[in-house]
Design a protein around this nucleic acid. Structure first.
Length: 551
RNA sequence: GACCCGUUGGUCAAGUGGUCAAGACGUCGCCCUCUCACGGCGGAGUCAGGGGUUCGACUCCCCUACGGGUUACCA
């Protein structure tokens, strides 16, 4: 067999020399230890927390080492393309603080290692495939889907491993003449790797290979023996081939990807070996899991819309909170570090792959919420105010009118009770925050809670009218509360809860009930931050107006 | 089915032969307190099972169980 002839027959239009690409895509000039990572999403238009989780690893590794993080769009599966997906990916990741130095971008590709869309790299892949064919490392396969199905069925019958390999690889040794005639008759073909792996042997004779995984340590896995498809019939490569060619030419040093790729690692190792290229360092991350019917399950695009990044964005989770949460589950020593360095920027934490867990992590909303509270309490109120406005513009336009032009008001509301040694931690995400403060806005103010059962409706009136009578907006907090105590005792309620606890039979209730009545009149709810402070923000006019309305 | 990865409380986890097995979230109780938060204190709760190796195993080896993943001209 003359392989050069075969190569020209299969790729008459490809005239380039693979070595030229080595020239074009030079080794990167980076400081020692700098890592080059990449995110390679397929543009299916959906990106979830799990993707962010992985992207964050890439981003940290590259940026904390002075390296490069780039975006490569893996659009080799034309069936799954979705319009606008790339924009969604870029903007969602950017929102959550993951930014690229290079690669696909909203205003065109950026960088010297492109193109960064795999669909635009067909000629590159074909050049390398042609070389492999000319060296006898790859060959055309004309099998139809039916033939492939037959092979599989036969393998199942014989209980042999499924796949295209060894004696099952029907077209592995087709003659040049046969190939010529098939091509002449217009048959389409794929190009397969001629695997050098051993097969048709006893289990104990299977060769094992060792790969150092950044996260998992030494992996010992059986070598590949599958004649995998390199180039599909449409001339576009499979993931396997595109990954190897791209990550080599783009000079990726660390391939971070989910553990679902572990089983195909032997394929990639053989390809790198066949092409004579050094292996990047693989980092197979554990996946984010979800609990379903009592079992853990990998996050799925289809099944878990509530885990899409857009969901968190629309709920109004602050990007810092999400990043903080992801880092705590990504690196086991992060939480400890954070406790020691409460105010340090997250970037100053030294992220390491060694500290990554390698078993699947369950997404924990409680934990996210808790972290979010701590993150938001540290955010200056003006910043939080702007965040609320931005969120409203995107997801709750009817609120924009309440917020914009009244930033001072909103800022005061958001800052309520947040100063001092023990600041309140009421805020989790924008939607919840607004719910929490909605009574400050007349349009959203409503009576939600009933008055306490131990307070009669005539007492409610009495309490509120004495409150109104004694009300002085200039009172300071203690003067104000002194009056509440007086109203309590005047109406038969204990001025101090302890008195009531000692002799409950002497009173109808205690001062807490009185303030609850006022709280409900003013806020519509039995639970809220400090009444006096709220009144100061609300203003004298509105305070009096709301009390009057109830009377 | 085969192959691969994994298994410490409800969740995230520290731990690399000798610990009363950290810590965080959640949960429960108490304290603080005009409600709610915040904060403080305390409780319950874990090494999947079985064999080895060892003076001694959460830690090392083997088996089993369970969970996850892969098995495409998807990525």
């Amino acid at each position: 067999m003359n392989y050069n002839q075969l190569a020209d027959l299969l790729f008459p239009d490809i005239t380039g020399n693979p070595l030229e690409y080595e020239e074009i895509y030079q080794q990167r000039k980076l400081p020692a230890g700098a890592k080059v990572t990449r995110l390679g999403p397929s543009p299916t238009g959906f990106i979830h927390l799990g993707n962010l989780y992985g992207a964050f690893v890439d981003e940290r590794l590259a940026h904390q080492s002075g390296g490069v993080f780039y975006l490569r769009i893996e659009d080799t599966d034309e069936k799954r393309q979705v319009e606008g997906a790339v924009e969604t990916i870029i903007s969602s990741l950017e929102f959550f603080g993951v930014t690229f130095d290079e690669g696909a971008a909203l205003n065109g590709d950026k960088g010297d290692y492109g193109p960064y869309y795999q669909s635009r790299r067909a000629e590159i892949y074909q050049t390398f495939v042609k070389q492999m064919v000319s060296l006898g490392q790859a060959y055309p396969c004309f099998c139809t889907e039916e033939e492939l199905n037959e092979i599989r069925a036969a393998q199942e019958n014989l209980k042999e491993n499924p796949g295209y390999y060894g004696k099952w690889a029907k077209h592995r040794d087709l003659s040049l003449e046969e190939i010529q005639s098939r091509i002449r008759s217009g048959q389409s073909f794929v190009v397969r790797l001629r695997s050098q792996g051993t097969h048709d042997c006893k289990d104990e004779d299977i060769k094992m290979i060792s790969v150092e995984d950044g996260i998992r340590g030494t992996l010992t896995i059986p070598e590949n023996d599958q004649d995998v498809v390199l180039l599909k019939a449409n001339g576009i490569p499979t993931y396997h081939f595109a990954h190897v060619v791209d990550d080599h030419l783009m000079r990726t040093t660390h391939v971070v990807r989910g553990a679902e790729w572990l089983p195909s690692l032997p394929i990639h190792v053989e390809l790198f070996h066949t092409l004579g290229w050094p292996l990047p360092i693989y980092c197979h991350t554990a996946q984010l899991m979800k609990m379903e019917d009592g079992n853990k399950r990998k996050l799925s695009k289809r099944k878990d819309p509530e885990l899409s990044l857009d969901y968190y964005r629309s709920e109004g989770y602050h990007p810092k909170a999400v990043r903080e949460y992801l880092l705590t589950i990504l690196n086991s020593n992060y939480e400890e570090w954070r406790m020691e360095n409460p105010d340090a920027p997250l970037e100053s934490f030294e992220f390491t792959v060694e500290k990554m867990s390698n078993s699947g992590t369950l997404f924990d909303l409680d934990k996210l919420n808790d972290i979010s509270k701590d993150v938001l309490v540290k955010l200056p109120a003006t910043e939080l105010c702007q965040f609320m406005i931005d969120w409203a513009k995107a997801y709750k336009p009817d609120l924009v009118g309440c917020f914009e032009g009244r930033e001072d008001y909103l800022t005061k509301i958001l800052d309520l009770g947040r100063s001092g040694d023990k600041p309140r931690k009421d805020f989790i995400f924008a939607r919840q925050i607004f719910e929490f403060i909605s009574y400050f806005y007349d349009n959203y103010f409503k009576a939600e809670d009933p008055y306490p059962e131990n307070v009669s409706s005539s007492d409610v009136k009495n309490i509120l009218s004495s409150y109104l009578k004694s009300y002085d907006h200039e009172d300071d907090q203690s003067q104000w509360f002194e009056k509440i105590r007086n109203i309590a005792s005047d109406n038969g309620y204990a001025a101090k809860p302890k008195d009531y606890k000692k002799n409950p039979e002497l009173y109808k209730g205690h001062v807490g009930d009185v303030s609850t009545v006022i709280r409900i009149a003013l806020m519509g709810r039995a639970m809220s931050p400090d009444i006096w402070e709220i009144q100061q923000i609300l203003g004298e006019e509105k305070t009096i107006e709301r009390i009057k309305k109830v009377l």
